[in-house]
Amino acid sequence: MSTQRIDGHISQRFDEEMEGIVSDLLAMGELVTEQTESALFAFIRGDVALAQDVISKDTRINELELEIDDHCIQILARRQPAAGDLRAVVAIMKAIKDLERIGDQAKRIARIAVKLADADERYQKQYGEFELIGSHVISMLQNTLQAFREMDADKALAAALQDKSIDSDYEAILRQNMTYMMEDPRNITRIVEMTWVGRAIERIGDHARNVCEYTIYLVQGLDVRHKDDDQLQAIVQSRPKR
């Protein structure tokens, strides 16, 4: 089976608790997606107010991590979950850590956005590559969350594989930024900051991929960490259907 259910317990209360941590995780995921999107928008447009908003909202993400963690610990202590329920709790406890880190990266982007907000017109062309990598990472985050929401291993695999294009977008940004630095050394400080933004987005892709791996673990019971794309694909697709 390539999907997993979390409801249907004899204890309705247990269903509610499981549904609670799943929906909280999704809410947290949506919030960090929003934060990433806003941070990128603020960076590209030089919108200081929006960037400040992203920075201040990061505390909410940290709070959510603590809350969900606590709910998971309560379920472990009081329900002794097994099989798919156990995998769901474990996957969620791991996923919130990556989501929290995505939040941190969004905050990092927002801080750089504040720093570089006074951009002259002539620099604007340098942001083109960020539009591209940004749209890729947002799409990956959305697909990651959708795969988790539907507890669908095939969708999680597809989302995990999106990380590759983000890595190559980042490579492109690095190459381009080196060119800009060579063209005019006065740009170096600014370009280094922009490179950090690219690096942050690349890290967000890695964290999203981790969440996809936990989703695959949740659904199929397979630990697919530390595998390359080909191995990941082979393992997920070879899993016999129940």
Partner: peptide, 20 residues
Amino acid sequence: EIFTNPQDSRTEDYITGRFG
């Protein structure tokens, strides 16, 4: 394996408290 990743859905339903 049984308690982390059972292969049969009846096993899973039983050990996770979905029927008794």
